[in-house]
Design a protein around this nucleic acid. Structure first.
Lengths: 135, 135
DNA sequence: TCAATAATAATAATAATTACTATATTTAGA
DNA sequence: TCTAAATATAGTAATTATTATTATTATTGA
């Protein structure tokens, strides 16, 4: 109900997320936007991130390392999470379009969406390893 | 390196997880085990849950509602999370066995595992809805 | 039985996020 | 353009989930 009012801070937050693929945490967004708005508060960042996520303009990603991350790319895609450095990146692979129906076959509830997250070691962690990893 | 020593508390925690499919949070585990060990501490529950997860005897599940959940079922399977009541349940569907390779095709890192989580509304939330949902 | 070691309970500390409130910004209308 | 209503903000306090600390207790191998 409550009408949304423009704010430069929100625009800056959204703009940052549209132009990065780093899947930043709220704190990383805060540090970035702080460069333009030196006295923006962390609460403002959180409130706007949640607002934008609720409106579907960005996506909130739950990760195993505590802080949630945010993604300005809203078209369906999947993520990789590095167990070593905690970085998160997009994967270049086709969406599993039938999977919601497959999952719904032996399930009585209603399935609207899904997330897929892959885990392992990112390229740069592979290369920075001191020990050679035997296969 | 450090040798593991038996503890009745840890056994009780593991036993609970082996016999429930409720995907409890640390706090729910605490409340349950408290019935048998009235002065067990929450820290003990957390420490043992992490220990068991590290040993691969249970699984830690990241959820969008803050608290992590724990699962005594360690064979590959997928989860459903109800956006309305926050309950989590197992889905009866075949594991996507090829998906790690598919994801790895255009990816330079190393992919070890994946999780799939479905979102929507569970049966009991569907039924308890006051409004009829038009399709 | 005993000594070494790991586990515990109780508590304090930390990290991520949300809530509160007085002030500032936005915006629709006169 | 000016004004008033409504929303947004900064700054701060509070909450929640989790980890760290430490003195005491339980386990275990000799």
């Amino acid at each position: 109900m409550t009408a949304l009012k423009y704010s430069r801070q929100r625009e800056s937050i959204k703009n940052f997320l549209m132009h990065t693929s780093s899947h930043p945490t709220a704190d990383m967004v805060y540090l970035h936007v702080k460069e333009t708005f030196p006295n923006i508060s962390l609460g403002t960042v959180y409130r706007n991130l949640n607002l934008l996520a609720d409106m579907g303009e960005i996506i909130k990603i739950t990760t195993p390392d505590g802080a949630d991350r945010f993604d300005g790319r809203t078209t369906p895609h999947y993520h990789f999470f590095c167990n070593e450095c905690g970085c998160m990146m997009d994967l270049d692979m086709a969406p599993l379009s039938q999977i919601n129906e497959v999952a719904g076959q032996n399930f009585e509830g209603e399935i609207d969406s899904h997330t897929v997250t892959f885990y392992g070691k990112c390229v740069s962690c592979l290369h920075h390893d001191t020990k050679a990893t035997a296969v």
